[in-house]
Structure formats: structure tokens, C-alpha cells
Design a protein around this nucleic acid. Sequence first.
DNA 1: TGATTTCATTGACTATTATCAACGTATTTT
DNA 2: AAAATACGTTGATAATAGTCAATGAAATCA
Lengths: 192, 192
Amino acid sequence: MYDLFFQKLNEKISFTAEEQAIISSYLTTKKLRKKQYLLQEGDVCKTIAFVQKGALRAYSVNEKGVENVLQFALEGWIISDLYSFMTGEPATYYIDAIEDCELLLITKAAQEEVFAKVPKYETYSRMQITGAYLAMQKRITSLLSLSLNERYLNFINIYPNIVQRVPQHMVASYLGLTPETVSRIRKRLSAK
Amino acid sequence: MYDLFFQKLNEKISFTAEEQAIISSYLTTKKLRKKQYLLQEGDVCKTIAFVQKGALRAYSVNEKGVENVLQFALEGWIISDLYSFMTGEPATYYIDAIEDCELLLITKAAQEEVFAKVPKYETYSRMQITGAYLAMQKRITSLLSLSLNERYLNFINIYPNIVQRVPQHMVASYLGLTPETVSRIRKRLSAK
DNA sequence: TGATTTCATTGACTATTATCAACGTATTTT
DNA sequence: AAAATACGTTGATAATAGTCAATGAAATCA
């Protein structure tokens, strides 16, 4: 049932069967159909979601209605409005399903009980957020120092599976480009 | 001696005097003169540095010799090449002192012993990196969705103290702009 | 203190990408 | 199955920031 979830955990730290049983007891499952929201701006984000199946994105919408994609999540990834989750403040972005999804959810209260009962889970959690921090740092470096061509190439190198499953205009938004520009970059690249 | 350091810790979680004594015993101090390196590209980053006094920056240098500022750190902040620190791989960026600095250092081995002896310190560490992650997320949003004017204004709003202490061309680099562009933005803003 | 280097500003020019609009195709909805 | 919507591509144009170069001021160094 929770195979992928524990596979990911055990890649970083090994958990015993008992520990896994304790953790499991705090998880709930949720299915989302394509285009459904997991979270809407203004709601408080009550859970962190682990993706068992499907694809989601987190995005904000500015005054002019322009969408900015902050994050994608595929199988094995985690997605949440972490600021809202941590503070209880209303969310500043939306999370919705790009494909039909199966998720595992954990609430803040549940997470804290698991931290208390299975300290290794807090270590895992620290390592997980550290990894997310480092990935984000790479993204900033890519935004600051690469040409648009390199930025796109770098992206499809790191996330080949995203490019195949996500509409191009969302990728453009993630990269800070217009859809037209991504289309032209692809054209240039395919000409070579 | 370690006043500022424990002040920062206690803002998030309170530590007893004993706990603070244990943690202290794992810290070392280091002074840096302006322009000295804390870390050079290619070295393994052995420590995380807490800034007691002064200002530093982390930056990478590309093939053309262009510097890209990834991070600033002032009093009370933490700075490190976390990827190198975590993995033991050679650092991909430099850290140097913008002003004379006084630092507290903790090695990876020391950190792990402290995690074992004072579990709360791991909780603190998780919260600290989570905060850094969220700050970085805001920076990405600023890079993706704000006009250059707004980006500069947003920066001086969040970090007024950095603008006063750091050369303008480093701020420009942090914002992904040329020094000329920042100069023109400032001119435009002062005209209003 | 005088010399040297670093830094910020300004102007002229160029390259690049966003914007706007139109079109054809694919996908979704009813 | 037909209609409506969403998506990607292409072209023309405009706006914007980068590049290059020169200057003066400030900070650093010897």
C-alpha cells in the first residue's frame, strides 16, 4: 500500500517494520482527479502530500491573472504550501492535479506525534527538506546565470519525465519564460 | 560569548543551560578579515558558520569569470556550502568576508553528536533549514514574477541592512541584474 | 600622502525577449 | 459527433535590459 513512500524513506534512513507501522497509522490517502485542487489560495494548508501516483503543480496567480508555477511533483515527491502548513496562515498559492493522482497525507499534528514516537522520522524530515533546499538553490543558480537555451536544456536534463507529462506552457512558467519563447527555443534546438 | 547564537536558538525552541553548555562545547570560533575566504571552490566545506559579527557572501564564478551571488549572511545568519557539507563533495562556490567577521563553526561530526545528545537541536536545525527553504522560495517568486523595479524594491524592503553594508554590484548580482541596471533603477526611483 | 584600484554613474547602441495577433491542431465537453 | 476550449506555433513589432566605453569619485594600498 505505502510501498513507494517507505522506499523513499529507506533510501535515506532504514526504518524497522514497527516504525513503519507507527508511521503508517498517521497517514491518510486521497485521490484527486485531473484539474482538481488540493489547495486553494486563502485556505490553510493542513497537510503535506506525498505523491504515490500522478502529477501536480503549485502555482501562484498575480493581480493580472498570470500564473507562476513554483513547483511540480511526480511520484515519490512531496508537495505542500509549507509556509501555510508551518504557520497556519492562509496559503498564498494553489496546488492542483495535472493528472489523476493518488496521495498520502500527513497533518501537522500527526507529523509532530510521529517525530516524538519515531525520532528517526524527524531526521528523515530534516534530510528531505535539506534536499529540497539544495534543489531550489540550483534552480536559483539556473535563473541567475544560464542563458534561456541553457536553462531549458538544464531543465529537460534534470527532469526529462516532467517535460513529457506536463503542458509546455507550465514548463515555460516554471522557467520564467513565455510559452512563445519556449516554443522558439525548442525550434532552435531541433534545428541543430 | 555565544549570546547571539543562543538567542537565535531560543527564539525557536528553549534550551536549558545544560543543553547550551553541551552545544557550546562543540563550537569553535574563527575570525576573518575583510576579503578573506571562508571557503574556496574545490575545497570540501567542513563546517557550517554562524555569523556573530560581520558580513559574508557565497558566490559562484562561471567560465567567463562572472560572479553570481547566491547568498549574503549578516549577524545571526548561517552560511555554508550545504551540498558540500552534506556530501563531502568539493564545493562549487566561494564564501568570503565582505567585512571583518567573527564566526562560530560546527563540523558535521560535531553536529551529529549534538543531534544525538540534544535531540531538540535537531528539531531546531530542521526548523532553521525549513526557514531557509521558504526564504529561497520567496526569492524564486521574486525572480519569476516581479518587474526589475519591484524586485529591487522588494529586496531593500526585506533586507534594508544588506543594502547599506554591501557593495551595489553584489546586490545587483544577487538580483540577477547588471550593476548598470541597478544604478538606473535607483535613479528612476529617486526621481519619484 | 600620493598612486592605484575599485566602484557607481551615465550615454549610445544592440540584442533579446515579451507582447499582440492569427492560425491550425488537439483535447475536452456536452 | 459537434461545438467549444485549450494548446502550441509562427510572424511582426515594441519594450527592455545587456553590452561597451568613458568619467569621476571613493576606497585601498604602498
